[in-house]
């Protein structure tokens, strides 16, 4: 496969979960791989309840994972470890997350309740949609 993932956050077990999900998705879906190759920007996932934060630096076909929140990410997803998997179950329709099924409604509820905070939700929608797409296992 024509992509690379470098994990510089190996001190963080959660980074392997992120790496395995993205790599698994890229291996099984040409559409997700195509999205991945277009991605340029920095996103982060922050899970304070397990003291785990990882930054993902996308450079058109190359992903580097770093420990913590570094390099001023455009997207920061802050939530808890039990909610973050709900994001992986978001269905993607025409390149956009679908909020009309059970998983989508759950994510919306978390957003409205403040249990899920996304920096860059309105300012970086393209990167966020692409990030959601390559993290979704659906």
């Amino acid at each position: 496969m024509d992509y690379s993932i470098v994990n510089n956050a190996q001190d963080l077990p959660f980074s392997f979960i992120v790496q395995d999900i993205i790599a698994g998705n890229l291996e099984r879906s040409a559409a997700k791989l195509a999205v991945f190759k277009k991605m340029e920007g920095i996103a982060a996932i922050d899970l304070p309840d397990i003291a785990a934060a990882v930054t993902l630096i996308f450079q058109r076909g190359k992903l580097t994972l770093e420990t913590g929140i570094v390099s001023n990410p455009a997207i920061i997803i802050k939530t808890s470890s039990d909610i973050v998997t709900d994001l992986n179950l978001l269905k993607i329709c025409c390149g956009l997350p679908c909020y009309f099924n059970a998983s989508g409604r759950r994510v919306l509820r978390h957003l409205l309740a403040g249990n899920l905070r996304i920096k860059g939700l309105f300012t970086h929608p393209v990167l966020l949609n692409r990030f959601t797409e390559i993290m979704s296992v659906i």
Binding site: I21, S81, V137
Partner: peptide, 23 residues
């Protein structure tokens, strides 16, 4: 201890297709 949380914390390890498990 929640098993998913344990995986994220490295307290448990999983070998296999993680995307299938998450699905």
């Amino acid at each position: 201890l929640d098993a998913t949380k344990a995986l994220m914390q490295g307290k448990l390890k999983l070998k296999g297709d993680l995307t299938y498990v998450v699905r």
